[in-house]
Amino acid sequence: MNVPLPNADHLVGIVFLIMIGLTITGGVIACNANRLVRAVAGLVVCFVGVAGLYYFLNSPFIAMMQMLIYVGAVAVTISFAIMFAAPEESKKHGPPGTLAGPFGLITAGLLFGGFTLLALKTDWQVHAKINDGSVETMGKLLLTEYAMVFELISIVLLTAIIGALIIARRGRSS
């Protein structure tokens, strides 16, 4: 009888836990699934979770961009490539070398342990100032302070588009 009714704060916490769950399950599926399409599905789940995390970090804009770009573009592109290049990928799974599996596991474990220790041992100076997540300030910063980077990014994207076209072109019309 003394289980407290979940209030708003609890609800937020539960939603957060769900997001963490999505992220981690998605990540696990993405790097362990036998079929590449399922890996992409895992990636999508993971990205949705990450978008949720961003939302909790007071940046709804970035969260939505995460969905838009990663789910709507990157995941779709990867699935296209899978459909094109690996129709029978399911045969090709399995431990590649004798060492790769354990080796990967050890590396990943070490990395994870190291980072976690680093995160926990360091005494982070948590600032009281919280970003307001507003799009306006970000837009202003992008066009003033980071204008150069912004332009460079657009050039990179343009180059990427053209380069991708050139590499993948088959020359039907020639």
Binding site: L43, V50, A86, G109, F112
Partner: peptide
């Protein structure tokens, strides 16, 4: 930070174990 580290190390694990290029790409995204 821990979630970030977890995702990062999962990505590294995937990068090492995946044989196909697309699989590696997925890991890199992680």
């Amino acid at each position: 930070l821990i979630i970030g580290a977890l995702l990062f190390s999962m990505g590294v694990y995937g990068l090492v174990t995946r044989r196909t290029l697309i699989g590696m790409l997925i890991a890199a995204e992680l």
